[in-house]
Design a protein around this nucleic acid. Structure first.
Lengths: 321, 321
DNA sequence: TAACTTCGATCGAGAAACTCGATGACTCCC
DNA sequence: GGGAGTCATCGAGTTTCTCGATCGAAGTTA
């Protein structure tokens, strides 16, 4: 009975919600103010419901219904855009914008290898990058502001497809001459008694390290006398420097070490004995994404580039430095 | 860059997918065949992608992309319709169609009271009913083919809001003179040793009964010598008749008993001792439903009608019969 | 308080898109 | 090879959309 609103009208509503101003909203839509005004009016007339409160003064005031419809309009337009995007993906696979989210304990170490390979293999792909914590990345994926995430699995993102890419083994990073450096391997729990240095809260590697070393949820490592309370490193680079400075020990992932994180230091790296001394890196994307097929096709390439380097195990790399 | 497809064009695509025939699809859209044909062609031209394979013969053949886009088009139109529906819900709350799904162990006993009350309270509401198993109802809710479900919680439907309505206590239904009828209450596990009659597979009451009586997953009650293998009742009505016929014992929910399920029989009803002798009935709807506010407003009414009847506990009702 | 500015609504004309009926091109079937 | 059925194309009429100009109301400034 009620005719469907035109996409254009919904755009007007969304722009008006964005700008809270008819003139600027019209500008955002690249139409004149009169057109936008008439469009909003027509929408209100078609839906037979007030979207704006025109009583008080001249400023734009949405009704509760207007706010709700603006939200629904956004979702509806997303649906329409998904149709176009799916067609575009089929017509020109591996092209257009790809917004990749990556966690800080992977990004600096994998991207220098990954980006050139992606550019070479898929030259039509325009890669936009965002480095952030797992939680923030997942939120942006849900909101449709990121397309693919590269992080440690499992991800709690709903409606998402997750594919493992590689195993990122952990290594104990010790100052030279440290008693634990004497053995070939290190027992994870042995770090429990050490001054264990960590990344700050929010980094998944922090939690993975605590898990590995047998800490309970919420438990934090013992502090050195004189160590500032709750002090934590903001990146693996500063973390490595602190360990090299003798402040304690830490856990580093293979990918970072292979990329030369400890080059120039005299840190000793030892693999862990037993099981669980690794994390799984993987790609995550929304199952419903129009270009989901493209994203899946990226897996082999990322997998190849994230695989352990042959003949360059961390100890050797370190010894060479 | 690519303009958004018009809702009309998407309707054409969907109709063509439904009918697999231009003429009938045009009829479904109430336009002429030429209009629909031109619309599909325009869509293909705008998206710059083939949706139909026009090579082989004269019959309609969707390409893989065409099939995918038809699906996405459905989702996109749903989004647009949600805008209209939300406006309609605000303009005229508690009106229009409400598609209610209900499980067979509630429907026949609650609906005779619920429907008149709903009609009286919300005369503009047009209630469409569907009686089916929990699994099927949840599937239809997800597909948007049902608006509200009335069933035993918890429901596994995703993206859904669940609100408990009442506690539906279980009673042991025994033939007269049965040893267990001697006590005031019955221990649930006591039925484990009895010839326990059940509804057929798919009814949640069947699983709830097995849980209550301490059966493991997949374990079925012992059979009577000569009892057909895997025989189960298709409704509570036939189940009651079988118990009354001395074939065994069963478990009945309060709501059914209050509605007179055992009237005319000489069955003895006994409450269970201990905890867990009940299930929680509730309403379920999609969180994103345009009329979610309406559905939430139904809860008090359903709660009132599903509440235990005062001064009419099952035993009395039975004694009176 | 009077002129001025800002903002949203309205009006009329021109342009674009949509739809229809008629017709054309092609395939399948007898 | 003719006929029926099906989808694409064409030209005309109608509707819808958009623009620029203008109006009226509500602040703002001198």
């Amino acid at each position: 009975m009620t005719p469907l609103p035109s996409p254009q009208q919904l755009r007007y509503l969304i722009a008006l919600h964005d700008q809270q101003h008819f003139g600027r909203a019209a500008e955002q839509c690249a139409v004149t103010q009169s057109t936008l005004s008439a469009g909003i009016l027509a929408l209100e007339r078609q839906l037979d419901a007030p979207l704006l409160d025109r009583g008080g003064g001249k400023r734009v005031a949405f009704t509760a219904l207007g706010l709700e419809l603006a939200d629904r309009a956004r979702a509806a337009l997303e649906g329409l855009e998904a149709v176009v995007e799916a067609a575009s993906a089929a017509r020109a696979p591996m092209s257009g914008a790809l917004r990749l989210g990556i966690i800080p304990t992977i990004g600096p170490f994998l991207l220098p290898r990954l980006m050139p390979a992606l550019r070479a293999t898929y030259p039509r792909l325009r890669l936009y990058l965002r480095e952030d914590t797992t939680e923030h990345l997942q939120q942006r994926l849900e909101e449709g502001r990121l397309d693919v995430l590269l992080l440690a699995l499992p991800s709690s993102a709903p409606e998402a497809e997750q594919v493992a890419v590689t195993r990122d083994e952990f290594f104990a990073a010790l100052p030279p001459g440290h008693p634990l450096a004497a053995g070939e391997t290190v027992l994870p729990q042995a770090l429990h008694a050490e001054r264990l240095l960590l990344l700050e809260d929010g980094h998944c590697l922090r939690d993975q390290t605590l898990d590995l070393c047998g800490y309970a949820r919420g438990e934090t490592p013992r502090r050195d006398p004189g160590e500032p309370e709750g002090f934590a490193a903001t990146s693996l680079f500063t973390l490595v420097q602190m360990v090299a400075g003798g402040l304690g020990v830490t856990v580093l992932p293979r990918l970072a070490v292979e990329a030369g994180l400890t080059a120039g230091t005299n840190l000793v790296l030892r693999p862990f004995s037993g099981n669980g001394g690794w994390r799984t890196l993987g790609l995550v994307w929304r199952t419903q994404a129009p270009r989901a097929a493209d994203y899946r096709a990226l897996v082999p390439l990322v997998r190849r580039l994230a695989a352990p380097l042959q003949g360059a195990c961390p100890q050797n790399a370190n010894a060479a430095a």
